[in-house]
Structure formats: structure tokens, C-alpha cells
């Protein structure tokens, strides 16, 4: 299989790098896609190690959710990932071809008992806590996550 590659788009605004990666729905591509996104970021300067970890974790959650729940794990559907590397922050957007969902309707795991028992339901919670900002579009099939670089 050929390695993944991200297209560098015209900088918007000049100096802020902008990449696009279109992935088929295939969870086996997840790890490679995440390392590619991190490499794109690192081309534009250092990122604090803790933020590399956050980027990997948040990207893994967002892309896996898009493939599994958004696209229903349908290999004919794609996930579009866009990455903007700005001087002070990174903005990652992930869009799927599904019908979307209502993020407000996802129950939060609150009590220790719930956290210990649940085998699912931590992804959105983790993204909200690891990122500076998490925004969904109205349809609920695209997410924008902002992380700091420093």
C-alpha cells in the first residue's frame, strides 16, 4: 500500500500552513494518518511534547469517530482531514460523509462508578478536555479542534 500523503493547500493567510488529507474509511490507516499529521506540524517548528501527545490523541479520537460512527465503517465513504498550523496554535478539522449527530446528546461519564464500568463513551470527553476548543458544525458531521503549540 502506498504511504499516505497530505496535500499542502495555499496558505490562508500567508505563512499559516494548510494541509488536506482525504482518507478512505479504513481504521488500519489511522496510526499512519496521525503520524503524518504530526510530521506536517513539526515541519513548521517545534511543538511542546505534551501538545504532540494531545494532537495524537485528539486526532485519533476525531478520525476514528468519523470512520466508525460518521461513515458507519463504510470503506466507500471518505474522511476529510484539514490541518492548519498557525504560529501559536493548530486547528484540526475532521469531516465525514454521515448524517451527523448531536454532540450535546452524548452523555458524559461523571461518577467514578460510571467511569469504571463504561467500555465506551470517553472519546468526546477526552477531546473536550485535551483541546483548547472543540466545535461541531450544525449537522454534526464535522469537528474543529484547536490545540496550542507552545
Amino acid at each position: 500500500m502506498s504511504p499516505l500523503a497530505a496535500d499542502r493547500l495555499p496558505d490562508r493567510p500567508p505563512g499559516d500552513a494548510h494541509y488536506r488529507l482525504v482518507l478512505p474509511t479504513d481504521l488500519d490507516l489511522l496510526a499512519e494518518a496521525i503520524e503524518l499529521l504530526l510530521a506536517c506540524c513539526l515541519e513548521h517548528g517545534a511543538i511542546a511534547p505534551a501538545n504532540c501527545f494531545r494532537l495524537r490523541t485528539v486526532a485519533a479520537e476525531a478520525i476514528a469517530n468519523a470512520m466508525l460512527y460518521g461513515n458507519g465503517n463504510d470503506p466507500a465513504r471518505t474522511v476529510t482531514v484539514e490541518l492548519q498550523v498557525l504560529s501559536d496554535r493548530i486547528v484540526l478539522s475532521v469531516a465525514d460523509e454521515g448524517d451527523g449527530f448531536d454532540p450535546a446528546a452524548v452523555p458524559e461519564l461523571v461518577s467514578e462508578e460510571e467511569c469504571h464500568a463504561a467500555e465506551r463513551g470517553r472519546g468526546l470527553f477526552m477531546m473536550r478536555h485535551l483541546a483548547e476548543q472543540v466545535i461541531f458544525n450544525e449537522r454534526g458531521n464535522a469537528i474543529w479542534v484547536t490545540l496550542t503549540r507552545a
Binding site: T57, A117, A118, R120, G121, R122, M126
Partner: peptide, 11 residues
């Protein structure tokens, strides 16, 4: 790194 599915698998 470990994602939420990995944590769920550990549970």
C-alpha cells in the same frame, strides 16, 4: 498514546 477505545478495551 492510547485512545478511548484502548481505554475501553482495558476496562
Amino acid at each position: 498514546y492510547i485512545d478511548s477505545s484502548g481505554l475501553g478495551a482495558l476496562v
